[in-house]
Amino acid sequence: MMTPAGSADEPPAEAVTPWKSVRRTVALVIFGWATAVGTAGIAYLTLGSEWIPITVGVVLCLAFAVALLLLHRAVWLTVLSSVPALFVLVGAVQYAPEAALELRGVRENVVIVADSAAGTSSNDHRFTLRAKNGTELEEKLGYRGDVWVPKVGDRLDVIRDPESEVPMEQADEVDAAERMGGLIAGTVGWTLIAVLAGWRGHVRRRRGKGESLLLQLAY
Rank of each mutant, 00 (worst) to 15 (best):
I112D: 03
L103E: 10
S121C: 07
R107D: 12
L86H: 05
N109F: 05
L80P: 06
A85G: 08
A114G: 11
I112R: 08
V79G: 06
F87P: 03
A85P: 03
A114I: 09
N123E: 11
N109M: 15
A96R: 02
G91D: 10
E98A: 07
V93I: 14
V90H: 00
T120W: 12
A85M: 09
I112T: 10
Q94D: 15
E108K: 06
G91M: 02
E98M: 11
L86M: 15
E108R: 09
G119I: 10
V79I: 07
L86A: 15
G105K: 08
V79R: 07
R104D: 08
V79A: 07
S121W: 10
I112H: 11
E102R: 04
S122Q: 04
A100S: 08
V106L: 08
E102I: 01
L101R: 15
E108I: 13
G119H: 14
G91T: 01
L103A: 13
P84K: 01
A92R: 05
G119A: 14
L80N: 11
Y95R: 00
V113N: 05
V90D: 02
L89M: 10
A85Y: 14
V106Q: 06
L89V: 09
E108V: 13
P84M: 01
G91L: 02
R104F: 15
A96D: 02
A96S: 03
F87L: 05
Q94R: 09
A118D: 06
R104V: 12
G119E: 12
S116D: 07
V79W: 04
T120D: 08
V88G: 00
V113L: 02
V93D: 00
A99F: 11
S82F: 03
E108W: 10
G91F: 02
V111Y: 02
L80V: 13
A117H: 09
G105A: 09
D115L: 12
Y95E: 00
V79S: 03
E98I: 01
A92T: 04
L86R: 14
L89G: 14
R107L: 03
R107E: 15
L103Y: 04
A100P: 01
F87W: 03
A85V: 04
R104K: 15
V83M: 12
Y95P: 00
V79N: 05
G119W: 07
R107N: 13
A118W: 00
V90W: 02
L86P: 05
E108S: 07
A100Q: 15
F87G: 07
A92E: 06
G105E: 11
L101E: 10
A100F: 01
R104L: 15
V88T: 01
V90F: 05
N109S: 09
V106E: 12
A118I: 11
N109E: 13
A114W: 11
S116V: 06
D124V: 11
D124Q: 08
V93S: 12
A117E: 04
V106Y: 02
V113C: 10
Y95Q: 03
V90S: 06
V110E: 10
A118H: 00
E108Y: 15
V106P: 04
S116G: 07
R107Y: 13
L103V: 08
G119Q: 13
P97Q: 06
P84A: 00
N109G: 07
L86V: 13
S81H: 04
D124I: 14
I112N: 13
I112C: 05
A118C: 01
S122V: 11
V90R: 00
N123C: 12
